[in-house]
Nucleic acid binder design. Structure first.
Lengths: 127, 127
DNA sequence: AATTATAATGCAAATCTTTGCAATTGCAAT
DNA sequence: ATTGCAATTGCAAAGATTTGCATTATAATT
């Protein structure tokens, strides 16, 4: 494992934007600052960072996975499959489960962003 | 919403294989039985089924999202980012959380497959 | 049965992502 | 400083997925 400039750029980009970025958005952002950088380099660097646990991925049902810095404050979402509305879930509700799992399975969980799909109250009725 | 033959084929394929299939694997499977079917039709049908809640998606860190029939018995995984080993999590451990969330947020949760990433006991030490 | 509105499909092009291989770079050991 | 090894990168090609638009099929209505 080596200190790569692509990795650095990606980490900075994620650090600045602090939002959920798709791989392509990341490529675009990095490309602005260093146009010479090849797409495949960016995609490969992203893979690396994820498997190193420095970056996390989640699927928010947007058609593409989204990335963010690992170590950001854990936060979670409910996504309604009826209307698309996204609700935040406080980490208080999730953290205890994570701790239980870590204890039961002797695991150190890195996932800091859960996305759960379902139907909101309204969309259950409109069914 | 209409009864489409592509949808039927996909549901049957998922029903037979009962495993986690990527969109491309699904396309291949369906293509075997009906070679005339266009890729874009399959991908669009898959989208449709997901947003209708008949099929669920999850990212297992394999580089591609995996699909399965909604309504299958809920099951969950821990994926180790060190060695890649996959541990099953009993639904007993997860179900209570889901119920709590459903109550607190008046939601009907459809996600039946959680995938959490982290480090197993060994890989924490080898760090 | 004919008509209409809407959903699903095919096709081709565009876009996004992955992969193989050769060239380059960074790091450590000499 | 030089050397050697392994990781990273660029490039080009292949592969996967999405999109726009015209066409076809479906279901409901008349």
């Amino acid at each position: 494992m080596r200190n790569s400039s692509a990795d650095q750029l990606i980490l900075e980009t994620l650090g600045v934007q602090k939002s959920h970025l798709t791989s392509h958005q990341i490529y675009e952002g990095v490309h602005l600052r260093l146009p010479a950088l090849n797409p495949s380099t960016v995609y490969r660097a992203l893979d690396r960072l994820v498997s190193q646990g420095k970056v996390t991925v989640s699927d928010m049902g947007l058609g593409a996975a989204v990335f963010e810095l690992a170590g950001e404050k854990p936060h979670h979402h409910l996504v309604c499959q009826g209307c698309g509305y996204i609700t935040m879930i406080a980490d208080d509700q999730i953290a205890p489960l994570m701790e239980t799992l870590e204890k039961n399975y002797h695991y150190k969980i890195k996932t800091n962003h859960l996305v759960l799909f379902g139907l909101c109250e309204q969309c259950q009725q409109n069914h």
